[in-house]
Nucleic acid binder design. Structure first.
Length: 293
DNA sequence: CATATGTCCTGAGAGC
DNA sequence: TGCTCTCAGGACATAT
């Protein structure tokens, strides 16, 4: 007997820390709140150094001996807020990780922070090195992340807000949702997942979306991102993304469309997932469940 | 103002 | 087998 085997040809997918992954990083280092920074070190490695600003002697002068007041998140960045209102930001971009456990590889460790009270050291690891680390004073922080530079957090949206932000735009909704100046935290993976659950075609122009549909997009955005946070984010086939304990996330097992071209849509169970390219990025959707109308 | 495009970087996989 | 090429998509600088 001959069994037919269908082999799916898939591209390897890189992980892009988006809101749920960065929120998972934040939660993973909450224990440093109240602890004192005892050392900050830029780790020398063979790779091209990542961007760290200002220079390390300034970072040490402003951080060592100071207490961490709060660990927060702004969009896709982890924010370590010091007692003097200085904030150290980890911006992981494509492959950055914040870790308290042994890293996936020593060679890509870029930065370390040590703490009092016996807290574990915090590492910043980055395979491709596109991420950034930077320290801002209160005024610099407020200016850089003012509403004109970064939109409201994706967990805080509602339909009316989305209609106000996007309602006159001619852009495709999927492309628009990735614009961090408009809404902060949604990336390429969750944009496809959100629009699939909301049953909106990714190429639909923003100015043709009704308030009712924006309501649905807003509710779905919050629900999906919160679910993904519960599952500690998505670790894709390349395995790059890890939580702070260097364990993979779990939300990839709940993806409906992302990186699933050719597989049947889990909603209609009938139509294969389609992959298209919008603004040089992959979009995945179901032609049956997500009509242009 | 809004929107589009090129760039940074590494490693995996395809194809020859 | 080993080389070259392409691609993945974060944020931002620059162009239109």
């Amino acid at each position: 007997m001959i069994m037919g085997i269908l082999i799916m040809i898939k591209n390897e997918s890189n992980t892009m820390p988006e809101l749920p992954e960065v929120e998972t990083m934040r939660r993973g280092i909450l224990a440093i709140e109240g602890a004192k920074v005892t050392a900050a070190e830029k780790v020398r490695c063979q790779r091209k150094p990542i961007a760290i600003s200002p220079n390390m002697s300034t970072i040490r002068r402003r951080m060592v001996g100071k207490k961490v007041k709060q660990v927060g998140r702004i969009g896709k960045r982890v924010v370590i807020q010091m007692e003097n209102e200085d904030r150290l930001l980890f911006e992981p971009r494509m492959t950055g990780l914040v870790l308290v456990a042994d890293p996936p590889s020593q060679e890509h460790v870029r930065f370390r922070l040590e703490f009092s009270r016996g807290e574990k050291e915090v590492l910043y690891w980055d395979r491709r090195g596109l991420g950034m680390i930077y320290l801002l004073n209160d005024q610099q922080y407020q200016q850089r992340f003012s509403l004109e530079n970064l939109g409201p957090d994706a967990l805080d949206v509602n339909g009316e807000l989305l209609k106000n932000i996007f309602g006159k735009s001619k852009r495709a909704v999927k492309v628009a949702l990735l614009d961090q100046k408009k809404v902060a935290g949604i990336g390429n993976l969750y944009a496809s997942e959100i629009l699939h659950v909301a049953a909106i075609h990714p190429a639909k122009r923003c100015d043709r979306i009704t308030l009712k549909q924006w309501n649905l997009i807003a509710e779905t955005t919050i629900r999906i991102l919160q679910e993904a946070i519960v599952h500690e984010g998505s670790t894709l086939s390349d395995g790059t993304y890890r939580n702070t304990l260097n364990d993979p996330g779990g939300y990839q097992n709940m993806h409906r469309v992302y990186d699933k071209q050719g597989e049947f849509c889990p909603i209609c169970m009938d139509t294969p997932i389609t992959r298209i390219v919008q603004a040089q990025r992959s979009t995945f959707f179901c032609k049956s469940c997500q009509k242009r109308g």
